[in-house]
Amino acid sequence: MHLVHRIIAATLLLIGWAADANACSSAKRGPFLKEIAQTSKSCAHPLCGQIYATARPEAEDPKTPCPDDQWQRLEAAVTAALSAGGVLILGEMHDNATHHLLQAAAIREFALSEPSNETAIVFEQLRDDQQPGIDKFTAKQHSGEKVTVADFKLAVAWQKSNWPDLYDPLFETVIAAKRPFYAGDVSRAEIMKAAKDGAGVLPADASKRLALDIPLGAKFDAASIKEIEDAHCGALPKEAFDGMAFAQRYRDAHLADAVLKASQQHGSAILIAGTGHARTDRAVPWYIRKRTPEKKVVSVMFVEIETDNTDPETYVPRDPDGLPAADFIVFTQPAERGDPCEKMRKK
């Protein structure tokens, strides 16, 4: 991006929703903006709590009332997608509690605002083999029996998973609203088999149905492998990369399949997943668009700020050609964590 464009983009961002004097910023603040304000109180970074649209305003719906207002651009895009039977993807850092609070607020904002809205929620954190437990839990709830998040966790054996309890706000929101929700991921056994055996693990008809028979392309394959190598801190043997890259593709394709089924059954869907699955260039949105090009998909990523970096453009994930790989970014404070590479090398 040219320097002038970058300055303009940053200026538009910082005009933002906080300027009460701006007519565009006087719009009603619902659950999402309220949660952003609440979770950003202790963060002094200038980007913290800001929303950033990666596309130029003129590339979006010309009917957007305030194209310079980042929140209204996000709201318009998401509302248009869900009302047309589309998909909203909320990409997270799994161990960041703020991200889950914001995801829960986004569900209240976009899925619960209309009583007639049946938007389904799909979770990466729940696997196929846990769906029977989900179904039993929801049947119990719909029968009028009082249920809690603890009951849900027991039903799906959550304690045996590797996921933290930071997802409680999300489960509480979905359960309280009695909204349909589904497992999005494949079983651990399937993931391990895919990582070991590669593309040969799937029959040709299943591969075609999931759009796994369509190649990503050499540049995107290389980017995927580089991401896997970096995520594992260089501690994996290179011969494991191809299998792990296919396993990642399989998970993305399967998540897309779960989202498509949920949106077809209930009218629209929201996916809760890691930021890697939210990438528009080679992850879940890619598979949805290959299978249903007409379906609207909006990818919102929650991204942690860096202390000395105040340029929003440098945070935007990009494909190998430099194009944005997310539609919107919401900046948050980082989670407190140790060095993940130290733990990885010990393993």
Rank of each mutant, 00 (worst) to 15 (best):
T292I: 13
P237E: 08
E190P: 05
E118R: 04
V298R: 14
Y182E: 10
D168F: 04
A21E: 12
D339T: 05
E306Y: 15
A206K: 14
H94S: 03
E75F: 12
R108V: 03
D95A: 01
Q70K: 11
S207P: 08
H254F: 10
A177N: 08
L12G: 12
A84W: 08
R318H: 04
S116L: 03
A231D: 14
A245L: 01
V284M: 10
R6V: 01
A176S: 03
E58Y: 14
D321L: 11
I7A: 03
A222Q: 06
L74D: 04
F181V: 11
A97C: 10
Q125P: 12
W163P: 00
H142C: 15
T119H: 06
F32W: 13
H277K: 07
D205K: 04
Y315V: 01
A81W: 02
I214M: 11
P215D: 14
S42M: 09
E124R: 12
K347F: 15
A55L: 04
L3A: 05
P31Y: 00
P320S: 02
P67S: 06
D257Q: 08
G86E: 12
T173P: 03
G274D: 09
M1L: 12
P203Q: 00
M244L: 10
D319K: 11
L3I: 13
A120V: 04
Q265Y: 04
E172M: 06
P180K: 00
L166S: 03
P65G: 07
C233P: 01
L126S: 06
T332R: 14
A325E: 04
S299M: 02
R6T: 14
K41W: 10
L33V: 07
A27W: 11
C66W: 06
C48K: 14
K290A: 15
G49S: 08
A194T: 01
I270D: 04
I51E: 11
V303G: 06
V201P: 06
R291Q: 12
A240R: 13
I15Q: 07
S26L: 08
E75H: 10
E60K: 00
L255F: 06
V78H: 02
G16F: 13
A84H: 14
D185Y: 05
H254E: 10
Y182S: 04
N96I: 12
S42E: 02
I272R: 01
